[in-house]
């Protein structure tokens, strides 16, 4: 299936290129950078972000946004940790958490669709709500000592001696495949693109606009809790300050990966690449050792600006090219009133 995915999106191609350049640069600058372990760690450390970005990508494709996802990650970690502390079965906790996300997202979607509210406002409120709910549960971090949960977190798939990926990575990759499939091969996915392309047209073409608009927030909420669970497995604790600003990282990943914030344009492969690009920068900062972690933010910020400008330039060029082509085409042809007059007689 992946082979079928032609990279039509120039911005995405650029992101892939940037990733490659950064990785090569890292390999040249730092010994030991070029290794399977670095690559696998990249996936392990960013697995939850891959899921988060993939989920929010659908809302962005409709021309919307979901700002609540970072807070939902924290809320999920708190719910999971507190329920586990009370002795609940680990699998039941996971199911409850995922359900919370589905409900949370759906409610946001319903508000956006049926009250005509701007997604920005609704999900901002959702963000405050989820963040607040964390502290309602506990103002302090809750460590997780549940054995079953611990066992899940320790699952490793060995690819070679000392080289492994965690369960989170497997989940993230399966999730990525799911996103790609949803976007390309289901009516839901195509309607998502149509909505982002031209909402009015989507309505007039008889597409299920309302349903799709709600469902993207349902999906985003679901992915946020899934991501939250992965984050909890990763840190083995719940804390209200977890994943602070993660929604912005996720949105940035989408933009770097060539997903247009205006909606309708971008591949689900984009957020994945975007996350990896940001991850590589972080790894490089780590390798340097002397740089503060804020450098990551500065790099990612610069990069995002670069990506947006690149998109704008490409779009402008494309427009100009088309206009030229049409002008040329028109000049070639004979003026048509003759044809009209002919038809008239």
């Amino acid at each position: 299936m992946l082979a079928k995915l032609r990279i039509k999106n120039t911005a995405l191609a650029a992101a892939v290129g940037i990733f490659a350049i950064l990785f090569i640069a890292g390999s040249v600058m730092y010994p030991n950078f070029l290794s399977l372990r670095v690559l696998l760690n990249l996936l392990i450390n960013n697995a939850y972000m891959i899921v988060l970005a993939g989920g929010v990508c659908f809302t962005i494709l409709t021309g919307g946004i979901d700002l609540s996802i970072g807070a939902v990650v924290a809320m999920t970690s708190m719910i999971a940790a507190s329920l586990l502390r009370s002795g609940m079965n680990a699998y039941l906790v996971i199911a409850i958490c995922l359900l919370t996300g589905v409900v949370f997202g759906t409610v946001q979607g319903l508000l956006i669709q049926y009250f005509g509210l701007h997604p920005w406002i609704v999900t901002l409120a959702g963000m405050f709500f989820a963040r607040g709910a964390c502290y309602l549960i506990s103002v302090e971090a809750i460590p997780i000592k549940n054995q079953a949960f611990y066992n899940i977190s320790q699952f490793k798939l060995y690819l070679g001696p000392g080289r492994f990926i965690s369960l989170n990575v497997i989940v993230a990759l399966v999730f990525l495949a799911l996103c790609l499939y949803l976007a390309k091969f289901t009516k839901f996915g195509r309607t998502t693109y149509a909505l982002g392309g031209n909402r009015q047209s989507a309505l007039l073409m008889g597409l299920p606009v309302a349903r799709t608009k709600i469902l993207v927030y349902t999906f985003s909420g679901f992915s946020a809790t899934l991501s939250g669970l992965m984050f909890t497995l990763y840190t083995l604790s719940g804390y209200g300050l977890n994943a602070n600003g993660a929604e912005m990282d996720a949105i940035a990943a989408c933009v770097i990966g060539g997903v247009s914030l205006y909606g309708g344009i971008g591949s689900l492969f984009g957020p994945f690449i975007g996350v990896l690009v940001a991850g590589v920068i972080r790894t490089m900062v780590d390798f340097q050792g002397t740089l503060s972690s804020w450098w990551t933010k500065i790099f990612v910020g610069t990069l995002m600006l670069f990506c947006i400008v690149l998109q704008a330039v490409i779009v402008e060029r494309e427009k100009a090219r088309k206009a030229d082509a049409q002008q040329k085409k028109r000049k070639k042809k004979e003026p048509a009133p003759a044809e009209l007059a002919e038809a008239k007689s």
């Binding site: 195509r190 309607t191 149509a194 392309g197 031209n198 009015q200 047209s201 073409m205 597409l207 309708g264």
Partner: peptide
């Protein structure tokens, strides 16, 4: 034109 500019021609004809 009440179609979606970002979708392919074929898709615009058959979407839904």
């Amino acid at each position: 034109v009440n179609l979606c500019p970002n979708l392919s021609v074929a898709e615009n004809v058959y979407i839904g």
